[in-house]
Every structure is written in structure tokens, then in C-alpha cells.
């Protein structure tokens, strides 16, 4: 097993005819993901990457029955794209787009919740279940099939952690970037629960960063629910207060959202917190060997 995506994933890409959209749609297709179509308004009836392009998600659903969509639509239209996918009943919506206005995201999230579907992101690298399916923009080659679940608010830092694991011969069940924005569809808790319930996941790697309180809430959840070992790294221990560190959500304000508060909460929940990002891989290796 893996979580959220697998061999049965049938993917469409919203914004498939754009530069980014087509590049990554192709990369997912090459990885083995079943790409069944794409959506670009006014380009319906054409073809790209040997799949049909539709004018709307609704049309795509009627014709090729996707269960997953990946969104590359520009920020000003991306929230509408999420709402369109949710209203069309797509079960898994992965939004890669960065820079969506916060109040637009609140509307999009309402549509996601009322339709009972799952949104991952926005402002995220997507997800990959190695050797099964990839719905994202991560470099495929660094991944390896295995038993560690990886969840992160970041992109390249996730690649770093995954690469360390793969170098040590440790594979991953699913790797998910949940996104660096203040309002996201799927949070740490949702993913931790799925990993805990997934038979193929034996350990969890959780990468957080400054800003908000998602890691503290995750720590509470881990205490109550997660029995599998969790290793964590929190980026931004050296970040100053009041400065947005690249991600819209990565900001310490009013003394809240610091890395040390998050590390403390996770430590208290029995999570092994790495101070050095270079130690993420080896810490997981040691913990897996211990539990065997």
C-alpha cells in the first residue's frame, strides 16, 4: 500500500498546455502515472502527450473518468481551478501553484470540504509513491520504494531528506509535500493518520518549518494516535522574527511559530527531533534497525 496515490491513480492536469504543466505532466507520465487527460480552457479538442485536452474538468470527468488532478494554473485563477475540480467530484486535488491570495484559498477550501474531496497544497511539490505513481514536480530519480513515509511543508528540503534515505538504501512508501502556505488542504495530522494506518509504512519522517502551529498540533496528535516511530526536522531555528522566509507561511510573529517551540512540542510527544538536517537519513536508519 501507499497513501493517497497508487497504481489506480488516473490523473488529469489542469493547465496542461502551459510550459510547467506540460513538462511535469510528461515527467509523471514517464514515471508510470496513468495520465488520462488535461484541461485548458479554449484548448478543448486538441491533444498533448497522447492524451485529450478538455475545456473544463466536468468534460474531462465525463470522458476519461480521472480520480486525481494536478493544478498548474496561474495564481490568480488557481483557487477557481480548485473549486472547479472539487465541484466536479475529483477525489484528490494536488495544487502546485504558488502565490494564491489567502481569502481565495478560504473559498477554495470551503468547496473542497463541502464536496468531501482531498486537496494537497497549494504551493507544494505534490506527492510520489515510488514505483507506483507520481503526481508532483519532484525529481523522480532520488526516490526508492520502501517503508518510510515522508511528509513536509517544503520542496527541496524534502528532496534532501529523501535523497539521504535512498543513499542509505532506505526506500519510501509515499512522500508528500503539504505546502508552504498559511491555508493548505491537507495538514500534518491528515498525513500522519494515513501513514499510521498504512501497512507498508514502518516509520515516518516529518519535516516542518517556522510559522503557524501545525507542528504543535501534529505533536498532540502523535501523542494520542501514532505508534510508529517519527523522526522530525524543523527548519528555521536561526530565522529572525517578523521576516517571511520565502514561503508565505514561514514567519515568526508575536513570538509565535518559532522552531524551538515546535521542536519542544515534538520532543515531548516522543518524536526524535534532528537538530542537523544532515542527520535525518541516518536517524531514520537507526530507528528502523532498532525496531527490527
Amino acid at each position: 500500500m501507499s497513501i493517497f496515490i497508487n497504481e489506480n491513480t488516473k490523473l488529469i492536469v489542469q493547465g496542461i498546455t502551459g510550459k510547467e504543466g506540460s513538462f511535469h505532466a510528461k515527467s509523471c507520465q514517464e514515471y508510470g502515472t496513468k495520465l488520462v487527460g488535461g484541461v485548458t480552457p479554449k484548448k478543448g479538442g486538441t491533444e498533448i502527450l497522447d492524451v485529450p485536452v478538455f475545456n473544463s474538468v466536468e468534460e474531462a470527468v465525463a470522458e476519461v473518468k480521472p480520480n486525481t488532478t494536478m493544478i498548474f494554473v496561474p495564481a490568480r485563477f488557481a483557487a477557481s481551478a480548485i473549486i472547479e475540480a472539487a465541484d466536479a467530484g475529483i477525489q484528490l486535488i494536488v495544487c502546485i501553484t504558488e502565490g494564491i491570495p489567502v481569502y481565495d484559498m478560504l473559498e477554495a477550501k470551503k468547496a473542497v470540504i463541502s464536496n468531501g474531496v482531498r486537496l494537497i497544497g497549494p504551493n507544494c511539490p505534490g506527492l510520489i509513491s515510488p514505483e507506483k505513481s507520481k503526481v508532483g514536480i519532484m525529481p523522480s530519480s532520488i526516490h526508492k520504494k520502501g517503508n518510510v513515509g515522508v511528509v513536509s511543508r517544503s520542496g527541496t528540503l524534502t528532496y534532501e531528506a529523501v535523497y539521504q534515505l535512498t543513499q542509505l538504501g532506505i526506500g519510501q512508501s509515499t512522500c508528500i509535500g503539504i505546502g508552504g502556505d498559511p491555508v493548505i488542504g491537507t495538514n500534518f495530522i491528515d498525513v500522519l493518520k494515513a501513514f499510521q494506518d498504512d501497512k507498508e509504512t514502518d516509520a515516518i519522517c516529518m519535516i516542518g518549518e517556522i510559522g503557524g502551529s501545525a507542528e504543535e498540533e501534529a505533536a498532540d496528535f502523535i501523542k494520542q494516535y501514532v505508534t510508529k516511530p517519527v523522526v522530525s526536522f524543523i527548519a528555521g531555528l536561526s530565522a529572525p522574527e517578523g521576516k517571511r522566509m520565502g514561503h508565505a507561511g514561514a514567519i515568526i510573529s508575536g513570538g509565535k511559530g518559532t522552531a524551538s517551540s515546535k521542536m519542544k512540542a515534538l520532543n515531548n510527544a516522543g518524536v526524535l527531533v534532528c537538530k542537523n538536517p544532515a542527520d535525518i537519513g541516518i536517524t531514520i536508519k537507526n530507528i528502523l534497525e532498532k525496531s527490527n
Binding site: T156, S238, H247
Partner: peptide, 17 residues
């Protein structure tokens, strides 16, 4: 100089270490 916000923050942390 780093690519990606998370890795950039982690790199600052490494410098601190």
C-alpha cells in the same frame, strides 16, 4: 545561495551549527 525556501532555512541552520 539555495534553491527552495525550506532548504534555504535549513542551510542557515547548518551555518549556525
Amino acid at each position: 545561495m539555495v534553491n527552495g525556501a525550506g532548504l534555504a532555512m535549513a542551510t542557515m541552520d547548518i551555518i549556525k551549527l
